[in-house]
Design a protein around this nucleic acid. Structure first.
Length: 506
RNA sequence: CGGGGCGUAGCGCAGUCUGGUAGCGCGCACGGUUCGGGACCGUGAGGUCGCAGGUUCGAAUCCUGUCGCCCCGACCA
């Protein structure tokens, strides 16, 4: 017998959270480091998660009237230069293509040749190039609203990368819309924020707070940026999605103009909104435990894995057949907009090892099915939301009839657990000293502290935000859309309309 | 770009201080015994020690340079 290990993942969350995060990715086989600096390879299990996210979000975008399209990965440098704040925001992190040919050098190496007249920027986001096309597509109020979404990869040359949370290249969707009025554009941006919120809570089981970004945290070139902010298990905030009201800023830089029903040619109003593969990092840090990944059933690539136990069977083929019949019966069931996904794992591995591999991958339900179970027409069931050893025998029919409800119960439980954690690490703070104490009084201490969200009244500005960031390492995550009572800002002594959220963030 | 750590077999590491031609665990392949909580025995494959110079009879080890990775900052979805 093997020695018993307490946990599948080492170190545990408590011991070293960042290292734990990386080990979970490795143990679940979600992704791995690539030969290219800052870029990861998303492996099948991780990509399947992304595909499930895409499937759900894509349907929601279409249900709200958006169409998919695709725009070039290369953006002429001059396009990016059109909007001053946009340039300022992205210039520092752009990959630039300057040549279009390689020539064989004397020493066998390849030398870039054929210098481009105008450098091309690998898109860090597509507002400018999409704007150039929208300018052609929009002539009349009859062309509006124009509601487009693109699934794409983007590149931001970040100084420091972390798998899924911040990589040089990442996958995302970016919605871009054009409207006749500011009101309509704002409504669009807010609608998509609601879509993101619903997705985060109902599918990812990740509770989020909708709010507006401060000027300092706003998207470069936007008039308003709204966000969904989630709390990870270490108490840090994760910006999980953003939606921007761009005013007429990009319409002006891209010349998106239209003739209204009555009156003169005018600039249109635009929005953009996006979520990325960062959501996978958020999902991981919301639910996973010291035994690896924990997946919310609604996004799990596999709901039920069946492990045939054939070693002692007189007739192994009969056990496998029993498992496959069970799989077929389960797969005929509908669970939340799709069929129940079942995998029979016939790999030639020892039972314990095989079982643990699925624990680490986060599959909601594991079934060990051997001759004993077959004889009594039952299954031996383990749930990912219970300790790995807590397994029980369940009559086959009871399991089949109850599996959909069980998945829903697990989904709900994950959301409740995440909400409880957030509540336990959210604190209303009234005084400046309390605020500093909450975050450990210094940036170093804040990194190690058990802090979370601080709800504090606020009448400060960007300079004050900068000061708090320097001193404590915390940022103003958002001004929640949900109203709170008026009060007094502890930093300025000025009256405050409502509380804002400060936290350390990813 | 600043501060710290690290590049040795697929993974995790020892060996580096005190130079002598590479080792351990896991994994992998094969054979056997096992198997419902991460098995065991045996045999075997697998490494130009990140890269480039230098010192030396001899470099994983010493020197110089360089590339890359991780953690903490600054910056950011």
């Amino acid at each position: 017998m093997a020695k018993k290990e307490a946990n599948a993942i080492s170190p545990t969350r408590a011991e070293n959270y960042p290292e734990w995060y990386q080990q979970v990715i490795r143990a679940a086989d979600l992704a791995e480091q690539s030969p290219v600096r800052g870029c990861m390879v998303i492996k099948p299990w991780g990509y399947a998660l992304w595909e499930n996210m895409q499937r759900v979000l894509d349907a929601k975008f279409k249900a709200t009237g958006h169409k998919n399209a695709y725009f070039p990965i290369f953006i002429p440098k001059s396009f990016l230069e059109k909007e001053a704040k946009h340039v300022e925001g992205f210039a520092k992190e752009c990959a630039v293509v300057t040549h279009h040919r390689l020539e064989l050098g004397p020493d066998g190496t390849l030398i870039p040749a054929g210098e481009l007249e105008e450098p091309l920027i690998v898109r860090p986001t597509s507002e400018t190039i999409i704007g150039a096309m929208f300018a052609k597509w929009v002539q009349s109020y009859r062309d509006l609203p124009l509601l487009i979404n693109q699934w794409a990869n983007v590149v931001r040359w970040e100084l420091r990368t972390r798998m899924f949370l911040r990589t040089t290249e990442f996958l995302w969707q970016e919605g871009h819309t054009v409207h006749a009025t500011a009101e309509e554009a704002i409504a669009e941006a807010r609608l998509m924020l609601d879509v993101y919120e619903e997705f985060a809570e109902k599918y990812m089981a990740m509770p989020v707070i909708k709010g507006e970004k401060s000027e300092a945290e706003r998207f470069p070139g936007a008039v308003s940026t709204w966000t969904i902010e989630a709390m990870m298990q270490d108490g840090k905030a994760l910006q999980a999605g953003t939606s921007h009201f761009l005013g007429q800023n990009f319409a002006k830089s891209s010349e998106i103009k239209f003739l209204p029903e009555s009156g003169e040619l005018q600039y249109a109003w635009t929005t953009s909104w996006g979520v990325s593969t960062r959501l996978i990092g958020g999902l991981l840090m919301t639910h996973s435990d010291d035994d690896g990944l924990v997946l919310p059933p609604r996004l799990a690539p596999v709901h039920v894995v069946i492990l045939p136990i054939t070693a002692k069977a007189e007739d192994p083929a009969a056990v496998v057949a029993y498992c496959k019949k069970l799989r077929d019966d389960l797969q005929a069931l509908r669970y939340h907009e799709r069929n129940v996904e079942v995998e029979v794992d016939e790999r030639d591995l020892r039972g314990g090892e095989k079982n643990w591999s699925w624990v680490k991958k986060g599959v909601p339900i594991r079934l060990e099915v051997g001759p004993r179970d077959m004889a009594q027409n039952a299954v031996f069931m383990a749930r990912r939301d219970l300790p790995p050893g807590e397994k029980q025998t369940v009559p086959r029919d009871t399991f089949v009839n109850g599996v959909v409800a069980m998945l829903e119960e697990m989904q709900a439980k994950l959301l409740e657990r995440a909400k409880a954690l957030r509540a336990s690490r959210t604190k209303e703070i009234e005084g400046k000293a309390d605020f500093y104490a909450y975050f450990g009084n210094s940036a170093d201490e804040a990194a190690a502290s058990q802090s979370g969200f601080a709800l504090v009244h606020w009448a400060g500005d960007s300079a004050l935000e900068g000061k708090l960031k320097t001193e404590l390492g915390v940022t103003l995550r958002c001004v929640p859309l949900a109203a709170s009572e008026p009060g007094t800002c502890p930093f300025t002594g000025q009256p405050s309309k409502q509380r804002v959220i400060f936290a350390k963030a990813y």
